[in-house]
Write a protein that binds this DNA or RNA. Structure first.
Lengths: 138, 138
DNA sequence: TGTAGTGTCTCTAGTGACTAGAGGTTCAAG
DNA sequence: CTTGAACCTCTAGTCACTAGAGACACTACA
């Protein structure tokens, strides 16, 4: 049995965030002391580690909810879990793709100006003002 | 002179977003008709195009504010603009790096389970529960 | 047993960059 | 002159937290 602060230290999830997860229904409401403070068991620790790990991988609270729901019914098919993970994977891939395009564009823009001139002639500002100066679509 | 709806069409920025930019001080408050409706000139169009282009490239409202401030003082050094663009570039690169790590991890997790089993034995769920199953740090 | 200091409680509000909706007014076309 | 679309302001909601206020609880030490 440990306090919310202790749980926070062990999982590296901030105290208000733990309470937030409880409010969002991700984390079961734990027992309380006579003085109304939360007291967690190892189960709470494991659950919170799961949540944190999934958040680190970019899963939304909603997706995590579904995964936890599934965890609570070990007899169900895990198809949904695989789908969620694959959905997340393709989202990540799409983001990478988009960011790479941005990277190219920004590289081009930033290289166009050495910062030694004056705002009037700045290639950075000109590029932003005029989309036609862009290499590709974005 | 055109209405906010017309400006919206031409720039592909939604009407409430235009009003939001005005409120945030990115876009100068335009003239109004006798009936209190906004009327824009080409200047407003150009300014909004600039903003939209910068937003598309991921610049924050705050960064755009600084860029616009610079645009309004064409005699100033454009060092700041170059710095902002380079800052944005390194942020984008950092994001790409992080997302690639996530991609690998998710790929590994998603591949570990074909979705045909039962939640109890699901590798996706197991991986999320147990960080030790992860390949690398994240 | 008293007390000091830290931890915890709930509640509200703020973040960024919008988006949605209510309820009312104005414009342009026919 | 009427109709209907576009416009106005204002408030509240989104996501995943974060910050702060003001009050109460726990623990260590005297």
């Amino acid at each position: 049995m440990f306090s919310i602060g202790e749980l926070s230290k062990r999982t590296k999830v901030k105290v208000p965030t733990i309470r937030y997860y409880e409010e969002m229904g991700l984390l079961a409401a734990p027992e309380r002391t006579a003085g109304n403070q939360r007291r967690y068991t190892n189960e709470g620790l494991e659950r919170l580690s799961f949540i944190r790990h999934a958040r680190d991988l970019g899963f939304s609270i909603e997706a995590i909810s579904s995964l936890i729901e599934l965890q609570n019914h070990p007899d169900r098919s895990c198809e949904a879990a695989t789908e969620i993970a694959e959905g997340q994977l393709s989202e990540v891939r799409a983001k990478i793709k988009r960011l790479k395009a941005l990277e190219n564009e920004l590289k081009r823009i930033a290289q166009g100006c050495d910062g030694r001139g004056v705002a009037e002639d700045c290639y950075v500002l000109a590029s932003l003002a005029d989309h036609d100066l862009c290499g590709r679509d974005h």
